[in-house]
Design a protein around this nucleic acid. Sequence first.
DNA 1: GACAAATATAACTGTTTCGGCATATCCTTA
DNA 2: TAAGGATATGCCGAAACAGTTATATTTGTC
Lengths: 109, 109
Amino acid sequence: MAEQPLSDEAIDLVANRFKIMSEPLRLRLLQLLRNGEKSVGELTDLCRTSQPNVSKHLKILQTGGLVSRVQKGNTVYYSIADRSIFTICDVVCGSLEERLRSQAGIFAI
Amino acid sequence: MAEQPLSDEAIDLVANRFKIMSEPLRLRLLQLLRNGEKSVGELTDLCRTSQPNVSKHLKILQTGGLVSRVQKGNTVYYSIADRSIFTICDVVCGSLEERLRSQAGIFAI
DNA sequence: GACAAATATAACTGTTTCGGCATATCCTTA
DNA sequence: TAAGGATATGCCGAAACAGTTATATTTGTC
């Protein structure tokens, strides 16, 4: 069942989504938000980097539509806006496990 | 159902997979290979870039385990080594469509 | 062995991106 | 309105990356 080819614009959009998810710190932030919203301060404490850096990456995630932002008084809470990212991560993890397993198999027998 | 957190090494591996897939030309190459193997020359003709550029990106895809390389005589054929990438792309496309649709809804009543 | 075709590599350039630091902005409270 | 806490932004230097050109390597053919 051959799929229709994606247009150049569509490819750019997909590539951009992957680019957003290609940074370890951003993946870490998404993972930390998996079980519910967290403030910038909380996220900063849980990552090992500066608060400005966390804010910067959160903005990238938000611009990409992966995360949504809610301000309550003085603090800002971020939460997952698109849970399909976890499906994607699960598929990637499965693929990587498979690959590592078959590579490990080289040394067996 | 809270997932176990990924280790830093696992996150780096996943991020690297996304980075490999975050380049439009590489996505284009993967798409061109979807229905079967193609030679470097064929791929170069189908993309609008130089042959060295295609070879470079194919190498990146191969190193990442997304593509496999077979040499037959003078020409080299690449093919998809991990079809889970298409699952991933489909999920991303669905998410992006959804997002565009809801954005378009802003202008509707 | 010499030549031609197919593919890979090397060197270079311009661009992008990350992280850190300093600082600005916004909100709350006194 | 002044001060302090929370978050965002601007600027900088270093590193990574894409694309081009030239060239090397490999393979098949004469």
